[in-house]
Design a protein around this nucleic acid. Structure first.
Length: 444
RNA sequence: GGAGAGAUGGCCGAGUGGUCGAAGGCGCACGCCUGGAAAGUGUGUAUAUGCCAAAAGCGUAUCAUGGGUUCGAAUCCCAUUCUCUCCGCCA
C-alpha cells in the first residue's frame, strides 16, 4: 500500500503539509486504542502506525511552538525597527536587524523540520481507512456479510427461460457486439425498447428521489484531482478511474464525487440539515482485474447509468438517516417487483471510506445469481474531514458534518433482473410502476 | 489556439511597503425602538493551528498557490493555477 502511494503520480499533491488527512488527528490522539480495535474489524493492524503518528505528532507540535516563538520575536523586532526609523534612530535599528538575520536562519530550519514532520505524519494518516461502526461484523470475504433482510417472491421461470444476454439479442434491445466494435468490451449499445427502458428507469428513479425530498442535480461527468481526493477515490482507487492526462481530469466512477464535492470547503448551516441531493449520471469504471462470469452481459460494465442519492447530516442523526435511505432504496425495489436482500457488509468487504454499508442485491432468476444493485453508506466525518465540510453547532462551534450516499439505483443489473425475471413465452413483462415511463407493457 | 485584464473576508468592494485580519457597504446574529412588523438605531460577525485540564487569554499562519526581495509585504519581483473580456474555432 505504501508503495502504491509512493508510485502514485499524485503523491506530491496528496502528501503536502497541507493535506487534510482522513481521520481526525485529535480523535486518534485521544482514542488510539479504540481506533486500533475498530480498524481490526477491517482486518487492519494499525497499532504500530498509530503509535508512530502520535509520536510524530508530539515532535510536530514542539517544532510548531519553536517556530511560532521565533516568528513572534521577529515580528516584535520588525515593529520596533519601524518605530526607530520613524523617530530617526537609524543606528539602533541597525543592531536589531542583526538579530532578525539570525532568527531568520533559525526559522528556515524550524519551518523545514515542521514541514517534514507534517508530511511524514500525513503519509501515515492517508493510509488509514475509516473506522467501522461498532455493529459491523468481523469478516474477510463477501461470504462473511450479514444478511439483515430478505423480501419478495422468487420468480418461477417458464421452460424456455434464458439469461439476459440472450434476451438482449433475441429482442435486439442491447448490443454488446456493436459496443465491442465501436468502443470495446463493457460499453454496450442500448437499442429501441432497450434504450427506452433505460430512459424510463432514469426518470422513474429521479422522480422518486425528488418526491422523497432530494434536489435534482446534473453534475459534470469529469472532475479534478482535489474532488477525487475529497470523496476518497484518490489515492485509494486511482487505477480504477479513467484519467484524461492532458487535462488532468478524471471521469467520475459515480455521481457521489461531484455531488459531495459541491460542499468541499463549505461551512453549512445546521438549520439546513438534512441536505439532500440526487443525481443521474453516467459512471465510468476501469474495473481492472475483473473477469469471468462477473463481467458477462450487463453484470459489470465500464460505462453505466446510475442515480445516486447523497445526504449531509448532523453527526447525531446520520445513522437514523442511513436507515431512512436504506428504506427508500427498498421501496424502489418493491415498486419494481424485484426480490431482494440487504446485506450489512463485514469489515473486510467494506470500502476504505465507509463506517457502515448496506448492500442491496436483487435476484436474477435465469443466472440464478444475486446481483448488487445498491450500496448505501454512512461515511461519518471521514469524507467531511478530507474536504473540510463543516457546520456550526448550537454553541457556535465549527464541527465536521456526516456524509452519506447510496445508489438509487444502478441500472444495468436492475435491467438484467427485470429482463430475466419477467420473461415469458410472449415477451418480457414490465412492472406496473414502470409502464407509464416506458410507454409499453411488454418487450416484444 | 492568439491578445488583454484580473484573483482581497458569506457577498460586494477599498486598500501600491509599517500594529491590515484588513476601511466602507450588503448580508447574518443579538439588543433597542414598535401593539406587531418595516424603517431607524446600537453591538457583534473568518478559518486553521500552538500554549492552557478547560474557558478566558495570548502566540503563529492565512488577502488564488508556491517561491523571492525587505528589519517589515494584501501592497514590490518571479513562477504556477484559475477566472473574465475580445478575436479565432465550434455544439
Amino acid at each position: 500500500m505504501l508503495n502504491q502511494i509512493k508510485n502514485n503520480p499524485h503523491f506530491p499533491y496528496l502528501c503536502t503539509s497541507k493535506t487534510n488527512p482522513m481521520l481526525e488527528l485529535n480523535y486518534i490522539r485521544e482514542n488510539a486504542a479504540e481506533v486500533a480495535a475498530r480498524l481490526a474489524i477491517k482486518n487492519i493492524d494499525a497499532a504500530a502506525s498509530l503509535q508512530k503518528i502520535i509520536d510524530i505528532d508530539a515532535r510536530r507540535r514542539e517544532a510548531q511552538k519553536q517556530l511560532d516563538d521565533n516568528l513572534a520575536e521577529s515580528n516584535a523586532i520588525a515593529r520596533q525597527v519601524g518605530d526607530l526609523f520613524k523617530s530617526g534612530k537609524a543606528a539602533e535599528a541597525g543592531e536589531l536587524k542583526a538579530r532578525t538575520a539570525e532568527l531568520k536562519i533559525l526559522a528556515k530550519d524550524l519551518a523545514e523540520s515542521l514541514d517534514n514532520l507534517t508530511v511524514e505524519q500525513n503519509n501515515l494518516l492517508v493510509l488509514l481507512p475509516n473506522v467501522p461502526h461498532p455493529s459491523v461484523p468481523k469478516g474477510k470475504t463477501p461470504e462473511d456479510n450479514e444478511i439483515v433482510h430478505s423480501e419478495g417472491e422468487m420468480p418461477k421461470l417458464y421452460e424456455g427461460a434464458v439469461p439476459h444476454w440472450d434476451l438482449a439479442s433475441k429482442y435486439d434491445i442491447i448490443d454488446f457486439e456493436l459496443g465491442n466494435k465501436v468502443t470495446g468490451a463493457g460499453f454496450p449499445f442500448y437499442k429501441g425498447q432497450g434504450a427506452r427502458l433505460q430512459r424510463a428507469l432514469i426518470n422513474f428513479f429521479l422522480d422518486n428521489a425528488v418526491e422523497a425530498g432530494y434536489r435534482e442535480i446534473q453534475p459534470p461527468l469529469v472532475v479534478n484531482e482535489a474532488s477525487g481526493y475529497g470523496t476518497g477515490q484518490l489515492p485509494d482507487k486511482d487505477g480504477q478511474m479513467y484519467f484524461c492526462e492532458v487535462d488532468k481530469l478524471y471521469l467520475i466512477p459515480t455521481a457521489e464525487v461531484p455531488i459531495t464535492n459541491i460542499y468541499r470547503d463549505v461551512i453549512v448551516k445546521a438549520a439546513d440539515f438534512p441536505i439532500k441531493n440526487a443525481a443521474y449520471s453516467n459512471c465510468f469504471r476501469r474495473e481492472a482485474g475483473s473477469y469471468g462470469k462477473d463481467v458477462r452481459g450487463l453484470n459489470r460494465l465500464h460505462q453505466f447509468d446510475k442515480v445516486e442519492i447523497v445526504q449531509i447530516q448532523h453527526p447525531d442523526n446520520s445513522y437514523q438517516t442511513l436507515e431512512e435511505m436504506r428504506e427508500y432504496v427498498a421501496g424502489l425495489l418493491r415498486k419494481l417487483e424485484l426480490p431482494f436482500r440487504v446485506l450489512k457488509l463485514c469489515g473486510g468487504d467494506m470500502s476504505f471510506t465507509s463506517s457502515l454499508t448496506y448492500d442491496f442485491e436483487v435476484y436474477s432468476a435465469a443466472q440464478q445469481r444475486w446481483l448488487e444493485v445498491s450500496s448505501v453508506s454512512n461515511f461519518e466525518s471521514f469524507q467531511a474531514n478530507r474536504m473540510k465540510l463543516r457546520f456550526k453547532d448550537e454553541s457556535g462551534k465549527t464541527r465536521l458534518c456526516h456524509t452519506l450516499n447510496g445508489s438509487a439505483l444502478a441500472l444495468p443489473r436492475i435491467v438484467a433482473s427485470l429482463l430475466e425475471n419477467n420473461q415469458t413465452a410472449d415477451g418480457i413483462r414490465m412492472p406496473a410502476a414502470l409502464v407509464k415511463y416506458t410507454g409499453f407493457e411488454m418487450i416484444k
